[in-house]
Design a binder for these strands. Structure first.
Lengths: 236, 236
DNA sequence: AAACCCGATTGACCCAGATCAATTTTGACG
DNA sequence: CGTCAAAATTGATCTGGGTCAATCGGGTTT
């Protein structure tokens, strides 16, 4: 992929960062924030670009500022499992040592705040509250990962799709506020690889939900017509 | 379940604890260890007993000392997904706040080192290296969780079983040293719920592996006859 | 050692979701 | 606006693994 990556030439200010309240940096006081500012640099990625790859040695951490990313693992024969979608505020690559254990692509244009591992590690060292914040995030992710295992191992296609729609909507709501329109910037293939299904099954399930009046498929997303019905499907 | 739980009346010594080298406490120096000693108490659980349940408010953390545990989540209708098996040295319940997000049962007799949340939290506060150790463990678990998502979402039954056997053997080897005999203390149902399969499929797959000379099914476990063949199946 | 229980195995059959194969829709570009 | 390419939908068919139903041990109780 031709790199359309761009690194901003000049500084920026954490204090008016869009994700200031949710991200790792939420645990920093104004004085720390000023110092922190020098560690990160904003980097842009074009749609489809890979931000980092599984098995790359970890040299940077990333704080997603704008856009959506898919996080995935590949089997040698090409089968793909998407282990999560990242949204603004998510902190990626927290492997203090060693290698990344998944790859991350931009879905649409993306802006990240990139930190070099070593200075970031030094900054953390005498700031246990930041480490604690990172630990909290890791534990939250672990909990999400376990929920996703239940979905992958024990849920039917209908339940998977319904659970995905509600979960994705939930995340967008807490980020942008409530709405019945659920944008789906990822492709059907991405959704399929996230849910452990094929693209055809995802498509058919969407159509089925629409026929039953539960959702309406619109360009670039869906409208939740009957949230209760979708919830009933997801709960099962 | 009738509680056969037993709490040891008197103290014990961390310094000669079986899991001293692997567990969270590996990050403590001898002086700290003596203080730490007063925080934990050994507790025994009989086979099948529940150590803690999903949605219980977290009041304790557990360090598994002896035995095996199954960690699982249930859907409202009873479907179960085992999210992992715990072995000695594993640290359970690391939700600094809130609730456990899975349940944990003893598989066979189990001994844990139980820590009350509050004093443990206080102990951590001024020992960032312990927090760092816990963070490392969380990140390792996260990585395992993602690997398991790939298995659940994208692997065939044969691959699942082969991967499980090798992974389980690997953990036992690093704990007890190499051997071609792989004890399987968990039931077929447990294995099925771990792999997102049914008990029948697990049983059939074992039989198939045995017919092909890859393994030999023995009482309480299996013998690895042809590790290379099993590895080939798992890699696929 | 007979009776019983419970986990594991095996067989017969079925079905949810995969696979294969066309369309149809959408979007990018000249 | 027309042309192409990629994404999404839809249909027809197939199959891996689930479901249902015996049967088979191995251990424990009496």
């Amino acid at each position: 992929m031709a790199s359309v990556t761009m690194i901003e030439p000049n500084g920026h200010f954490c204090s008016d960062c869009a994700v200031r309240g949710v991200a790792v940096c939420a645990s920093l006081d104004p004085a720390e924030l000023r110092e922190f500012e020098h560690l990160g640099r904003r980097v842009h990625f074009a749609s489809g670009e890979t931000v980092f790859s599984e098995e790359d040695i970890t040299t940077s951490f990333f704080n997603l500022l704008e856009g959506v990313m898919r996080l995935y693992k590949l089997l040698p024969d090409g089968r793909r499992q998407i282990v999560g979608f990242a949204l603004p505020g998510d902190f990626l690559g927290m492997n203090m040592s060693g290698r990344h254990n998944f790859s991350a692509d931009a879905i649409g244009a993306v802006t990240v705040c990139q930190f070099a591992k070593v200075p970031f590690g030094r900054f953390i060292e005498d700031r246990p509250h930041l480490l604690q914040r990172i630990n909290e995030l890791a534990i939250r992710e672990l909990s999400q990962a376990r929920d996703h295992m239940v979905l992958l191992g024990r849920r039917s296609a209908d339940e998977k799709v319904a659970t995905f729609l509600l979960g994705w909507r939930g995340r967008l709501v807490s980020l942008r506020g409530s709405s019945n329109t659920v944008p789906l910037p990822m492709s059907r293939q991405d959704i399929a690889d996230y849910l452990g299904l094929t693209i055809e099954t995802v498509s058919r399930t969407f159509t089925k939900l629409e026929r039953h009046g539960a959702i309406e498929i619109v360009h670039g997303g869906i409208n939740l017509r009957d949230a209760a019905r979708v919830e009933a499907l997801a709960a099962a």
